[in-house]
Simulated assay, not measured.
Amino acid sequence: MGEKKRKEANKNNMIFGKKNFKWMFIGLGFIALGFILMAGGGSKDPNVFNEAIFSWRRIRLAPTLVLIGLGLQVYAILLNPDKDQSQK
């Protein structure tokens, strides 16, 4: 088998392309950032209640970022990597 045919055969074996992985890593970044923003707000003393757990950042922003990240993961999985190459 020629070098070109071997490269083409290896290329066709990949389920996800470069664009898929790029979107997956962007989605993972959103998810990680959401969980980082959600962390904290606890109290060292169990008898003291800390109101910081109800901040806008933890209730609205962080879960929204996690959901956006999950949506990007679905988009990355469904993205057809061969579509861009056929147009070139």
Rank of each mutant, 00 (worst) to 15 (best):
L79E: 12
A9D: 13
G40N: 00
S86M: 08
K18W: 11
W23A: 12
L33T: 10
K44T: 09
T64V: 07
V48G: 01
M1C: 06
A9T: 13
L28A: 13
F16I: 12
W23L: 15
E51N: 14
M14G: 14
M24K: 01
L61W: 00
L79K: 11
K22H: 12
A62P: 03
K11G: 15
N47F: 04
G27R: 02
I36D: 07
P63A: 04
G69S: 06
K44R: 11
Q85L: 13
L70W: 05
G29P: 01
E8C: 14
A62W: 03
I15A: 14
D45N: 13
A52M: 13
M1T: 10
D84Y: 14
F35L: 04
L37M: 05
A76L: 09
G27H: 01
G69K: 09
L67K: 00
I31S: 11
I31E: 12
E3A: 14
K11V: 09
A76W: 07
G29I: 00
I36C: 06
K22Q: 12
T64M: 09
F25E: 00
F16S: 12
W23E: 11
N13L: 12
A52E: 15
F49A: 08
K4I: 14
A32F: 10
G17F: 01
F35T: 02
A62I: 01
Q87A: 06
N47R: 03
A9N: 11
I36V: 11
G2A: 08
M24Q: 03
Y75P: 09
L61N: 00
W23S: 12
F21P: 10
K44W: 08
G17N: 01
L65S: 03
A39K: 04
F35K: 05
Y75W: 11
G71Y: 11
N80K: 11
E51F: 15
D45Y: 06
G29R: 00
E51L: 15
P46W: 02
K7R: 15
T64L: 13
L72C: 10
A39N: 07
P46S: 03
F49R: 09
K88S: 04
I26A: 04
N10T: 14
L33C: 09
L79W: 06
E51G: 14
G34H: 06
N50I: 11
G29F: 00
L70I: 10
D82H: 05
K88M: 08
K88C: 02
S43V: 03
W23K: 10
L72V: 08
L70H: 04
M1R: 08
F16C: 13
K7D: 15
V48W: 03
L70D: 05
K5S: 13
G2C: 09
K44N: 12
Q73R: 03
A76S: 11
I53E: 07
M1I: 09
G41L: 04
A52S: 15
G27K: 01
G40K: 03
D84Q: 14
E8L: 15
Y75D: 09
R60K: 00
A9F: 14
A62S: 08
S86L: 05
K44S: 12
G71C: 11
S55M: 07
N13Y: 05
N50L: 12
Q73M: 12
P46C: 03
D82E: 07
I77E: 06
